[in-house]
Each structure stands twice: as structure tokens, then as C-alpha cells.
């Protein structure tokens, strides 16, 4: 997003986190002082089931270099099955984006529970590494000259 000189480029990653597990996991990572890269911008949602393809693509369109969607582990959803419905949608979207040539690793999905602060930090590291390797996002990015 915005202008960054290529040398000091740091990816910007939009993270859609569910309120009950992944957001709490991120919070725990913070209070437990697990270090993770500062490249993510968190958007809190009630449930991973609330994440629609529009939102993920809007992040890419707005110039996010990567997207992370994270929810409760299957079976742990606060709303019982929100993440299980979402899982089907994510699987299809993930495949469709690869089908049209969006680099694998731009859009990522994970399950992180409220007690997994360390895992959250790990996921963010992994996603940041991947996106750094891919470089700045160019596909599906809106440019208004």
C-alpha cells in the first residue's frame, strides 16, 4: 500500500481474525511477549464465517501484499459451525484464486485458538516470510494513476 522504495519494502498483510479464538490468540501472543513481525494489520470479525470473498479480494484490490484469515479450530467455533461452513468457502476460493494465477501464499488461512499465542506468532512469521518471498503484490491491485 502506498509508496515504498523497493529496498526497504516491507509487506503489508491484512489479517481477518475471529473475535473468539484468533483475535484472543493474538492478544495472548502480545501479553506473553511472543515476538512476531509487525507486518500485519488486524481486522476483528465475529467469526471466520463472517469473512466473505469480497473482503479478501478488497484487501488485495486496495494493495495489501498478503491476506491472512484465521478462525477457531474446527469444532471450537463460538457459533458451533461458522468456521466449518467457512472452511468450504475458503477451500474453493483458495483454489479459484490459484486457478486464475494469483500466487499461492498471497491469501492464507489458519486456525488459531485463544490459548495458542505462540502458534499465532508462528503463523504470522510464516505468512510474512512467504509474502516477502513473493514480493509486492501486483495482481488484482487497483491503480488510479
Amino acid at each position: 500500500m502506498g509508496t515504498t522504495s523497493e529496498k526497504n519494502w516491507e509487506p503489508k498483510i491484512v489479517a481477518f481474525l475471529c473475535n473468539w479464538c484468533s483475535y484472543a490468540g493474538a492478544d495472548l501472543a502480545g501479553v506473553s511477549r511472543f515476538q512476531y513481525p509487525p507486518n500485519i494489520r488486524i481486522i476483528r470479525l465475529p467469526c471466520s464465517g463472517r469473512v466473505s470473498a469480497n473482503m479478501i479480494l478488497d484487501a488485495l484490490r486496495s494493495g495489501a501484499d498478503g491476506v491472512l484469515v484465521s478462525g477457531c479450530h474446527p469444532g471450537d467455533c463460538h457459533y458451533i459451525s461458522g468456521n466449518l461452513f467457512a472452511r468450504r468457502r475458503f477451500a474453493l476460493l483458495n483454489n479459484l484464486l490459484e486457478f486464475v494465477g494469483i500466487e499461492p501464499g498471497r491469501v492464507n488461512f489458519s486456525w488459531v485458538s485463544a490459548s495458542e499465542g505462540e502458534q499465532f506468532a508462528e503463523v504470522v512469521k510464516e505468512v510474512t516470510d512467504k509474502v516477502k518471498k513473493l514480493g509486492p503484490s501486483t495482481r488484482l491491485v487497483k491503480r488510479i494513476g
Partner: peptide, 9 residues
């Protein structure tokens, strides 16, 4: 009117 990151057209 399209705006993105403060720039618009």
C-alpha cells in the same frame, strides 16, 4: 469518484 490511499480521480 475513485479514491485510494488519499489519491483520487
Amino acid at each position: 469518484d475513485e479514491t485510494l490511499h488519499g489519491k483520487g480521480r
